[in-house]
Simulated assay, not measured.
Amino acid sequence: MARNAYGWLYDKIYSFKDYAHEAALIREIIHSRNPGASSLLDVACGTGKHLDYLKAYYQVVGTDLDEGQLEEARKRHPDVAFYQADMRDFDLGQRFDAVTCLFSAIGHTGGVEGLGRAVASMARHLEPGGVLLIEPWLSPEVWQNGRPHAVFVDEPELKVVRMNTSRQEGRQSVLEFHYLLARPQGVEYFTEELRLFLFTHEEYMDAFRQAGLSVEFDPQGLTGRGLYVGLRS
């Protein structure tokens, strides 16, 4: 599957997410640590759904590696600057009062070195007193091999089934998604493989500290996966 061709499908698959609630929690966390925050960078912003709500309070910018998702984000927010960038090594030439990296996108950094590079890159984009929020992927002790999953989309002109079972290769979790997509013009089948690294709690904490940030961990976070909150002095 060429992911860029199906950027529009992402929001259909994840329509269950309560972006308004998550954005309200994000704003509360930022405000409690940096009440004067007025700018925000969303790293791995996807189609820009969190920015639907956050841009009412901040001057926002987004980055993502997937051009297909950025295309959808630009359609949704023509007034927002979006950049294609790898979170492990990017430089926008500006700093922000808050930086977010949500929905476990940090798991795509490939390993402990990549995690450190990504957190350091995000930290470099913080103003003094700036806040970094990273929503982690699952930890090794929580990950379950061989568990089946399915998501369904049922609209008058669109039917989608996405199924997968989970497996582990070394420290990587592997999700091989199988899609059936039905539209008036016909039925398509395609696959997509995602690999997300299973970082430990200490590896996250160390990455923040090595980037020069103080850090705390909220085990509940936005969606139950936890949230790491860093602060630049």
Rank of each mutant, 00 (worst) to 15 (best):
E141D: 15
Q84V: 14
R74I: 08
T200V: 04
L132N: 05
G111A: 11
Y53K: 02
E28C: 12
L92T: 02
D89W: 04
V160L: 15
R195C: 04
F197I: 00
Y14C: 10
A211H: 13
G116K: 06
A182W: 14
K75I: 04
G36R: 07
T100Y: 05
S15T: 14
D89V: 02
H21E: 13
Y14L: 13
E155A: 13
R88N: 01
E22P: 03
S139D: 07
S32E: 14
V99A: 14
G46Q: 04
H201Y: 13
F16I: 04
S233T: 08
L213Y: 11
D97I: 08
H31L: 03
W137V: 00
G130Y: 06
I29N: 10
E71F: 01
E202F: 08
Y19A: 07
D206A: 11
S104A: 14
F190G: 07
A182M: 15
G48Q: 05
V151M: 15
G107H: 01
D18N: 13
T223Q: 15
I13Q: 07
K55R: 15
D206W: 01
S233H: 08
G93R: 12
V229K: 03
S173L: 03
E157F: 07
E72H: 02
L198D: 13
R117I: 00
L102C: 01
S139P: 02
L133D: 05
G130S: 05
L181E: 14
I29V: 15
G62M: 02
T165N: 13
R195M: 10
K49V: 06
M122W: 05
Y6Q: 12
Y19V: 12
G7N: 09
A20G: 09
T100Q: 05
V187M: 08
G130R: 03
G36M: 03
K17V: 15
D89C: 09
R3L: 15
V99R: 05
L54P: 08
E176N: 05
W143A: 01
V215A: 13
G146M: 01
A98R: 07
T191R: 12
Y53F: 11
I134E: 01
V161P: 04
G111N: 11
T100W: 04
G116V: 05
F96Q: 11
K12C: 10
L231C: 13
E176P: 03
E193D: 08
F177Y: 10
R171H: 09
K75F: 00
G186D: 06
A207P: 06
F199Y: 15
E193F: 00
L180V: 14
A5T: 09
V99L: 12
Q69I: 02
E216S: 15
R171K: 12
A81W: 03
H149M: 11
Q144A: 09
M122L: 12
P148L: 06
P128L: 03
D79S: 15
S233D: 14
P78Q: 03
K75C: 05
H201I: 09
T200C: 06
A150H: 09
V153K: 04
F217C: 10
F103K: 00
I106Y: 03
L25S: 10
L126R: 02
A182L: 15
Y57T: 11
E127R: 09
R27C: 07
V160T: 08
V229I: 15
R88I: 08
D91R: 09
L158P: 07
L132R: 04
N4E: 14
G129I: 00
A20Q: 14
Q59M: 06
F82K: 02
L102N: 01
L41T: 00
Y10N: 09
I13P: 00
D66A: 11
A37K: 04
D154L: 11
F82M: 03
P140C: 05
